[in-house]
Design a protein around this nucleic acid. Sequence first.
RNA 1: GCCGAGGUAGCCAAGGUGGUCACGGCGGGGGUCUGAAAAACCUCAGAUGUCAGUUCGACUCUGACCCUCGGCA
Length: 326
Amino acid sequence: MKIFVVTGQTATGKTKLAFNIAKKNKGDLINCDSRQIYKYLDVVTGKDIDKDWRFISIKKSGHFDIGYYQKMTKTVAQKSINDFKNQLPDYPKIWLYDIITPNQSFSSYDYVQCANYVIDYLLNQKKTPVIVGGSYFYLKHLLYGIETEKIPPDWNLRKNLARKKVKELQKILLTIDPATYQKLNHSDLNNPHRLIRKIEIASAKNQLPLKPSSRPQGLIFQKGYSIKIYGLRFKKKADLVSAIKKRIEQRLAKGALNEAKKILNMGFQTSDSGLKTIGYQPLFAYLNHQISLKEAINRWQTAEVQYAKRQETFMKKDKNIIWRQL
RNA sequence: GCCGAGGUAGCCAAGGUGGUCACGGCGGGGGUCUGAAAAACCUCAGAUGUCAGUUCGACUCUGACCCUCGGCA
């Protein structure tokens, strides 16, 4: 059973490659972009769908809405899907867009659950999963598994700890789990998010009886799967920058500003987790007359370029990625 | 042309009665990464407009010059 993965830097044309692979292998795309998972964040996140596509939900579990986008022919798009099910064009579907709303929380663990569900679903239908996206954190967990115990977020704890200074968090961790504390590097030691997570794990361990960690395994360790992981990246930084600039212009032309406005009108807060997505904050600042449009665009571009660099730093440690330079 | 303000790294910017060649922020380079990840965090590099003078010593004082920004003309 074949599984393809297309990952890499932003703005490298991952989706296009994924579509080509899917067409040749009777496949569907499975989104692995942590932003396109949100409903309503369409233009700024660059979802590759337009009016011809329709969302079909196949499973709602908890607050997750798992489904796919299906390309329609012009006439079909206007009528009921059921009447035309057999006439739909044979075109790869896109799974795992629009799972949650921008104010809902979603973790890499959640992603792995959703993705595995869809992968099984497709393999059962003898279809080829083509996982596509640049959220390597999600991808890493999907491919290689999550070794730590499955300790869910403790929102009360997080809320309390969020008010504390880094030094205090360090002290707490040092007290309840000195072994973990000693292993922290300089970066993690000053990272409130990660300190809080470590404290969360340590205090859960203290409360629950320690069970032998049943090592959940990632896709890559499962027998019978042949997985190819492609990574796209630019050879020259100047090309990355111009690709990003061009894409932002296109997204603005497609109505990125209206989308930002619409999202605020829907009642979402600028602090909602989905709206930490690159692009929205500067657009909000512009809409509030805090900065010029030019400044907003600059900030957006800079943030994208910085993100692309972080992606590469993270991904290049993965020796299973087959790189294609652009 | 005159009056005023000012010229500190790619950008913004602090400073001091002259004395380890200078606080920060952004941007840039390099990293971290196992239930927030398009997040959060770590780390490195880089500067006193030009020329002269005073002084043991000037980025800091003096003068000239060159620019920039206001106002007057």
